[in-house]
C-alpha cells in the first residue's frame, strides 16, 4: 500500500510480531486484521535467526486505542509468540522501493542526479527508462517517489517496512522461554 502524493505518512505504529514459521500463519493474521477492521499500512514477513520462528513487521494506520486492540487480538492467536509495539521506542524502520522511471533523453541526467541525492542505486537502464532501487525510512522513500513523479513513474514496487528497536535488547533473547511447538515436525501440521 502507498500514499497519494502529499499525504502525510501516518504516525508509525509499528508492531513486530513473532510467529511460528508454519503454513497459513499469514492467513490467520490477515484474517484477524480484516475482520476487526484494523487499517494497515504495510505487512512484511520473513524468517528470523531462529529456526521455526517468523517475524512480521506490521505498520498500523490507526489511533493508539485501536492499535492496543490489534495487539491484544494478535496475542490471542496460538501461532503468535509475542507482539512488540515499537512506537514508543527508538527504532530503525526501513522500506525498499524499486522504481521504473521514464527517462526521455532530455531528463535522463536529471533523474540520475536526483537518484544520487537519495543515495539510490540505478540497477537497470533501458532506452527510455531506468530502474532505481532505494532503501530508507518510509518518509525518505515517499520523498523519492514524490520527486520522481514529475518524470513519470512507469512501475513501482515497495516491500513495506521492516523495523527493529535500537539498542542491544532483543525480544527473543529477552524471552528465551517462549515455547515453540513440540511433537513432530511442524511443516505438515497446522494451517
Amino acid at each position: 500500500m502507498t500514499h497519494a502524493p502529499g499525504q502525510q505518512v501516518p504516525g508509525p505504529h509499528v508492531l513486530v510480531v513473532y510467529t511460528d514459521d508454519e503454513p497459513g500463519v499469514l492467513t490467520r493474521v490477515a484474517s484477524l486484521i480484516r475482520r476487526r477492521g484494523f487499517n494497515i499500512h504495510s505487512l512484511t514477513v520473513g524468517p528470523t535467526e531462529r529456526a521455526g520462528l517468523s517475524r512480521m513487521t506490521i505498520v498500523v494506520d490507526s489511533d493508539a486505542q485501536r492499535v492496543r486492540q490489534a495487539v491484544e487480538h494478535l496475542r490471542k492467536l496460538v501461532n503468535v509468540l509475542e507482539v512488540e509495539q515499537l512506537a514508543d521506542k527508538p527504532m530503525v524502520v526501513r522500506d525498499l522501493v524499486l522504481l521504473r522511471v521514464a527517462t526521455a533523453s532530455a531528463v535522463r541526467s536529471e533523474v540520475l542526479q536526483l537518484a544520487q541525492v537519495f543515495r539510490a542505486a540505478v540497477v537497470d537502464i533501458a532506452e527510455d527508462s531506468v530502474v532505481i532501487e532505494c532503501t530508507g525510512s518510509l518518509a525518505k522513500i515517499d520523498a523519492l517517489v514524490d520527486s520522481m513523479r514529475p518524470f513519470g513513474i512507469l512501475e513501482m514496487g515497495r516491500t513495506g517496512a521492516v523495523a527493529m528497536a535500537r539498542g542491544t535488547r532483543t525480544l527473543t533473547k529477552a524471552r528465551p522461554a517462549l515455547p515453540l511447538r513440540t511433537g513432530t515436525s511442524p511443516e505438515a501440521m497446522s494451517v
Partner: peptide, 18 residues
C-alpha cells in the same frame, strides 16, 4: 479461522496426537 480459537489440518498419522 474466524469462528475457532485455532484449527489444524493434519496430513500425517504422527501429527494426530500432538
Amino acid at each position: 479461522i474466524p469462528v475457532t480459537k485455532h484449527n489444524y489440518l493434519v496430513t500425517r498419522a504422527e501429527d494426530i496426537v500432538p
